[in-house]
Simulated scan of single mutants.
Amino acid sequence: MPLILQSLAPLSPADLDTARTLARASALVPRSDTVAVAEDCAPLTPALRDALDDFCGPRAIDWAVVPAGRKLSDFRLVAMDMDSTLITIECIDEIADFCGLKAEVSAITEAAMRGEITDFNESLRRRVALLKGLDAAVLDRVYAERLRLSPGAERMLQTVQALGLKTLLVSGGFVHFTDQLKPRLKLDFTRANTLEIVDGKLTGNVVGEIVNAEVKARTVQEVCAQIGATPDQAIVMGDGSNDLKMMAVAGLSVAFRAKPVVRAQASVAFNHVGLDGLLALFPH
């Protein structure tokens, strides 16, 4: 199985040689200053995983072992979480900042993403309830002033779209943001939660079915069926425990700057490179 190393900075020959030795590969061949590939590494045992983590982590190198023989164009769908994955912020935390409750809401968000709060529905309701009475115009301010795409997002999306892959943004966040990102990024499908707004104010309630871990996984499966693909042809990218179930049904799961519980269960972890690190994992 191929081993891929990638970094934001040039990879040094010494680091490549040490990684090659750890992985018992015959050669680590540079593809560019920042990407190198070994076509034959040792089986990915827990011991090898720990050794690569221990060596690569302090050097800001991301490593991945991927199935041999697959091309990026063999996949049919790229599904992404939104908050802290496709974008750099947690929208609900930034909304809460406008009513002076960012610290309180952020603490609940972090606990939920780490998996410490197992009832996502309850954690979302608790956070949204704190927003009651806030002017809905704040949502537009968060989008305009604070929402930023994660590094590499546009390059990754443009490349996979050019290869014919469909794209899905599925979020435990809010449709106010996914609806604006959909045309901006030419996304094919989106799903998220709806904040109830009455007379221009947030009521503190969520309307309809909450997009929790089960709904995320179901949405990935439904979109795969809709486009005539199998879940094994899906790539799923996420950062929090709410993403684990949809990542588990995918052919490839990518933990993006993720919580430890997510990194431990994902096929691949990007702790340093951008979302376009996906493009280095497979021939196109």
Rank of each mutant, 00 (worst) to 15 (best):
S26C: 03
A27T: 04
L28Y: 03
L28K: 02
L28A: 02
V29W: 00
D33R: 13
T34F: 02
T34G: 01
V35T: 14
A36E: 11
V37T: 01
V37W: 07
V37H: 00
V37P: 00
A38P: 09
A38V: 02
A38E: 02
A38K: 09
C41I: 06
A42F: 10
P43Q: 12
P43I: 09
P43V: 10
P43C: 11
L44K: 03
L44M: 15
R49A: 07
D50F: 01
D50P: 00
D50M: 09
A51I: 07
A51S: 15
A51H: 03
L52A: 10
L52H: 13
D53S: 07
C56M: 08
G57W: 04
R59S: 04
R59N: 03
I61R: 06
I61K: 08
D62M: 10
W63T: 10
W63M: 06
A64M: 05
A64I: 05
A64D: 03
V65H: 00
V66H: 05
V66E: 02
V66K: 01
P67M: 07
A68D: 04
A68C: 00
R70C: 02
K71L: 05
K71H: 14
K71V: 00
L72K: 06
L72P: 04
L72Y: 07
L72R: 09
S73T: 14
S73I: 08
R76W: 03
L77S: 08
L77H: 10
V78W: 06
M80L: 15
L86K: 11
I87Y: 06
T88R: 14
T88D: 11
T88N: 07
I89H: 04
E90K: 11
E90Y: 08
C91Y: 03
C91M: 05
C91K: 05
C91T: 13
I92T: 12
D93R: 05
D93Q: 04
E94L: 12
A96R: 00
A96Y: 07
A96V: 11
F98W: 12
F98D: 14
C99F: 02
G100I: 05
L101R: 15
A103Q: 14
E104M: 07
E104H: 11
V105A: 11
V105R: 10
S106D: 10
A107M: 02
I108T: 13
I108C: 11
T109G: 06
E110I: 01
M113H: 12
M113N: 05
M113E: 12
M113P: 13
R114Q: 15
G115H: 01
E116H: 06
I117D: 08
I117K: 13
T118H: 15
D119V: 12
D119Q: 13
N121E: 14
N121T: 12
N121P: 00
S123A: 15
S123L: 07
L124D: 11
L124T: 12
R126Y: 00
V128P: 01
A129F: 03
L130M: 15
K132F: 00
K132C: 13
K132M: 00
K132H: 14
G133E: 09
G133Y: 10
G133M: 06
L134E: 12
L134I: 13
D135A: 14
D135Q: 10
D135W: 08
D135G: 09
A136G: 08
A136Y: 04
V138G: 01
D140L: 04
D140Y: 04
D140H: 10
